[in-house]
Design a binder for these strands. Structure first.
Lengths: 183, 183
DNA sequence: CCTGGGTGAGACATTGCTGTCTCATTCGGG
DNA sequence: CCCGAATGAGACAGCAATGTCTCACCCAGG
């Protein structure tokens, strides 16, 4: 027995990614447990979302770590980062939109740290001359979130191949749609 | 009296953009009318969302028209389009996330036409050699939606200046974060 | 001055989800 | 084998939002 809390969280993330308004009952069924048991592990929907938020933050920080965002050319760091964060993109998309509902509420301190890490990466790229300076690091960070969410949904609906996810996001973010002049 | 239906729709759009889970009562108050009157004009929340969807579609088509998406260099057309669509970005963001909930449901035919128009624009840019061919037109369309939503939220939360909206989105989408080689 | 359409305020039942509780069952360890 | 912890199933009340209805009001046009 002893329900695997982490596995419950992951199936909840997968379900809520597809349907953000899923019921506690649906979440429980998706995890293969009863609503009562789900309630024993997460006091309520709110607690569940908080736990998912913590999971998302942990995965983002792990990705930031694994991608060694502060090493080497910033562009390569961005590519590594997108690759590392891909498995979490669905969860991120859910949390990203969910956060739009918290209105004034102060955001979790974890997000602030991740935002800072990303912003720093883009700032570093600007200082090294790799990135253009007319797009602010804050905007590039927001754009990355938006592209991750778009990408996750596009993949979920079959409009983009899963294998292309990393390439599509990283290359659009870095190079844009315009064709580069031949080097 | 005769409540101005269009004005109600616009205030609803503005409110739901900020808080997607707003109550019918909140929507009514935001429009300065009573819930009863709101109900007389829109049979229910569902009907309201449908009407907002129709409004969003109409504004998108108008923007697509006004931007003359099929004329001149594709890159310039994209810039005109982003500029023309900016006032609707908040509504678009709301509808974009709302649509994630409709799961299987067949999407409105209007969106299909707009998607087709955008995809065609990007395809045209590829054929003319302006746009790179490793990013599919479908993905560029999705990315545009995602960036519009990100941009709208970032502006709403004060992370990006409203005046920069068009530039940030269009230039990131077209040119990406990397600095161009000096021409 | 009337009259009627449009409105606001509020009551009401309904619905769907939530949170809590109970009870029977099951499974694993001692 | 036996016991206890964890679970599943279901009942139950509470709650928030919805949709419907009534009634009084106001104001513009006849």
């Amino acid at each position: 027995m002893a329900v695997d809390r982490d596995q419950v969280l992951r199936s909840a993330a997968a379900l809520l990614t597809r349907k953000a308004t899923s019921t506690m009952d649906e979440v429980a069924r998706a995890a293969g447990i009863s609503r009562a048991t789900l309630h024993r592990h997460f006091a309520g929907r709110d607690a569940l979302v908080r736990a998912l938020e913590a999971l998302g933050i942990a995965e983002c920080e792990a990705a930031l770590e694994a991608a060694r965002a502060d090493e080497g050319p910033a562009a390569d760091a961005v590519r590594r980062l997108v690759r590392a964060i891909e498995p979490s993109a669905g969860l991120l998309a859910f949390l990203y939109t969910e956060n739009q509902l918290f209105e004034g509420e102060e955001q979790n301190r974890g997000w602030a740290r991740i935002d800072a890490g990303l912003t720093e990466l883009f700032r570093r790229g600007q200082e090294s001359g790799e990135f253009r300076i007319d797009l602010t690091p804050v905007w590039l960070t927001e754009a990355l979130y938006g592209l991750l969410a778009s990408g996750a949904w596009a993949v979920a609906e079959g409009r983009v191949a899963r294998n292309d996810f990393t390439h599509m996001i990283a290359e659009l973010l870095l190079g844009g749609a315009l064709r580069r002049e031949e080097p």
